[in-house]
Design a protein around this nucleic acid. Sequence first.
DNA 1: CGAGGCGTTGAATGGCCTCAACGATGGTGG
DNA 2: CCACCATCGTTGAGGCCATTCAACGCCTCG
Lengths: 235, 235
Amino acid sequence: MVKNVTFKEAWDGIADCKVCALRESVLFSGLDEDNFEQIHDPIDQYTLPVGSTLYRAGDVGDRMYTIRSGVLKLVQYLPDGSQRIVRLIRATDVTGLECLLGENYKHDAVVLQPTEACSLPVKVVEKLSKENPKLHRELLNRWQRALNEADAWLTELSTGSAKQRVARLLLRLVSDAETSECQLFAREDMGAMLGITTETASRTIAEFKRQSLLVETSSNHFLLDIPNLQRIAED
Amino acid sequence: MVKNVTFKEAWDGIADCKVCALRESVLFSGLDEDNFEQIHDPIDQYTLPVGSTLYRAGDVGDRMYTIRSGVLKLVQYLPDGSQRIVRLIRATDVTGLECLLGENYKHDAVVLQPTEACSLPVKVVEKLSKENPKLHRELLNRWQRALNEADAWLTELSTGSAKQRVARLLLRLVSDAETSECQLFAREDMGAMLGITTETASRTIAEFKRQSLLVETSSNHFLLDIPNLQRIAED
DNA sequence: CGAGGCGTTGAATGGCCTCAACGATGGTGG
DNA sequence: CCACCATCGTTGAGGCCATTCAACGCCTCG
């Protein structure tokens, strides 16, 4: 199920954070010239194909990752082997924060949509965080953001009927509220996010399509009927 | 449903953290003499009865709380008014971390079992955290701990059949693995933790009692058949 | 062209929810 | 002190919704 893509294959080179197009919205937004000069370990940049694994639960955590584009799932496993997706990671997010506490990764991080990521050695982040209060505060923000997401998944995506859950997930996936555009995931993944079976996810999506709550514009790209989906979500 | 107990009624006095019996396991474990002398704002200590509310979602967050004993639930609400319990807070836990980022409280914090809590003004924690790296690291630890809990609730307590979820909840509630002793919550609360109805929670608990997986020793105190509950949980 | 993965759909089952009733308990006020 | 009421846990009956198991078409890829 999970393809094996080594990092060497995906390596894009060494990032120059100072000229990073995303710098303003990313972890390092608060850094200044001096800070950047203290980055001796290289910050590698990768392009990761769908299905590849960024890190695995239990691995020794020595790197954090900022996502420049794309989507990943964080997966946890139950003793019986079934999987549950506990969060999505998207552009400008940081994942692997647990490294900062010397802990192993808590999830598998698997690519759902083609992803560009920068790999930050823990040592670098630790050092900069000590010297730059802005970066430090930004780290706390990320932690809280992850916590908010986790809570929202529990209350929104694991509560209510299958229809409600799917509707709430779709509304969360809308990238641009104006165009109401949205890319879907494999039904199996949607099930693992919502705590329902693959078949139920499929049936619900299919029904939404028939009701024109969901209109396919191109392969796997959809326009949403936001008002009516909201009605279903809150019903 | 929620009793109104003002803090004045519950006030126990001003805490002397230096001689706190729990100091080793609590947020301030890393502080030294100098640090304590910088605490000018008083740290109040409260005893909170069951049903009282420590803080409410949306309130301006200016205080964090360390729990000396007891249990609280963190509750979030859905648009339709139904509630979902996203986490439990117990002895030595800290809650209200979001204050440190200047955010409002994200949940209602409601007492489930008689609780002793200390109220820490954000200003104090902020100041000490800047000066004492140990305390600071301890704060990060608490954030990560909350995140781990949130993830575990999603994978363990919101996945699988009602029987499995109840069994997993019970196993989490065992305070002492030796004696396998455990105090239960109201069925309505158990339902809100597990994403099932009150009736299903009640039915499941009742069935566990009939099967002697759960033996009542005194009012609302139970001994658990841990091995068999584990079998059900993982089944 | 065949194989395998994925989305969809059908039929049947069963588990959970809904609505309802009832007993036990504990607190309140007469 | 006791009658009363509200709350809570329990249980029953019935129905619905999600699961399970299965089959089929479509697509990509080797």
